[in-house]
Design a binder for these strands. Structure first.
Lengths: 200, 200
DNA sequence: TACAAAAGCAAACCCGGTTCATATTACGTT
DNA sequence: AACGTAATATGAACCGGGTTTGCTTTTGTA
């Protein structure tokens, strides 16, 4: 049951995030102060920090939450880790369910804000760091440690590159459909490169 | 000619860095305050920040200064980018000239401090970000943009993994020679993987 | 109705980093 | 050797992100 308490909390949380995103989009991440956001969202500063641990998290929440290690761990028997990941991104590219459900403008605004701020880009980068280690741990079950670490590093780096290109298309004005079509091709290229190596 | 002015500057700079590294090693990066460092190094806070732009830079200076893009751009004709980079790291691993010149204990302490602090690890990570883009730009001369970006991402991620393992060996107590021997093998494995891909 | 838990809040505080106006120091010139 | 200038050093005040503390309000429950 969704009690009044929980509804209100969710509501407050969303209000803060929306206000923050709007202000960031208007004036840039660095030029907006936490106090301004709190004031505009009509909460105390300390309350804001109870919902969002850092200024960055106001924008980065929900970004890079994919569980690469989980995808590999849950793959059907007989499928290689790389095939499992390729299948996952293929599916994501051709049928971006999650994306379509969210407000498109908000998503694009979010991407633009992230791209425009080095602090946020770097923060988004960090989020993949944990994924990489988790993925390396899963891959270490069937490879030696160094190979697993290298594979994980290459895979996460490639995924990050794909994300960046997808978002860049959006930021540069492409529609969600156009960006999705690009992504479909890009995924295949990326995984082919991972699979067959750099010298063809 | 090295005037008194320049000598004093260099001296102050080194004193600050040494004091900072010692305090960080003793009590951890986060637990040491900029004011403490300034006080212990007998300079004003504002002076410290004239030498080092951020707290992180007190430890990260000199880390990740390799110029991947430059190595590729300067390679002899007929050599592939990957071969050029492999040759560079092979040479570095078998004959760590730079490393041998520096105080070993200080280097190892530095690595330990970096590894023990998420903020510093993430900062070291960021330093490779610029390298990656520069490398992608160079590679884009002979590949399409996506391929160049993916190659650069995979290469820098692999290099970072190699660095991490090298440093981890040192931090775990291996001698410089032992760590170097490991590195020699690791370099070959890493570049073979890059060259031939993940599925053999 | 009473009450404990959850949520919110204002104010003071800590720390990294910057600004500013003032002092000190090294260097080239006469 | 004395002097003027530019580089460097400094203390103090300030800013913004984030935390701590102690208190009030709100909400679910008995």
């Amino acid at each position: 049951m969704a009690g009044l308490r929980e509804r209100k909390k969710e509501q407050t949380r969303r209000r803060i995030a929306e206000v923050a995103l709007r202000l960031f989009a208007e004036r840039g991440f660095d030029a907006v102060t936490i106090n301004e956001i709190a004031e505009a969202a009509e909460v105390a500063k300390v309350t804001l920090f109870k919902y969002f641990p850092t200024k960055e998290s106001l924008v980065l929440q929900g970004v890079g939450e994919e569980d690469l290690a989980g995808i590999v761990a849950a793959r059907p028997p007989g499928q290689s880790p790389l095939e499992a990941l390729r299948a996952h991104y293929r599916a994501f590219a051709t049928e971006p369910v999650v994306v379509a459900a969210v407000d498109r403008d908000a998503l694009i605004t979010q991407m633009r804000v992230i791209f425009d701020s080095p602090a946020l880009s770097s923060g988004a980068n960090d989020l993949l760091y944990g994924q990489r280690q988790a993925l390396a741990r899963v891959l270490a079950e069937e490879h030696d440690e160094l190979t697993a670490a290298l594979m994980a590093a290459q895979i996460t780096a490639s995924v990050l590159t794909l994300q960046e290109r997808f978002f860049r298309h959006l930021v540069d004005g492409a529609s969600l459909e156009e960006a999705g079509r690009h992504l479909v091709e890009d995924v295949e290229l990326a995984f082919d490169l991972l699979r067959h190596g750099i010298n063809h």
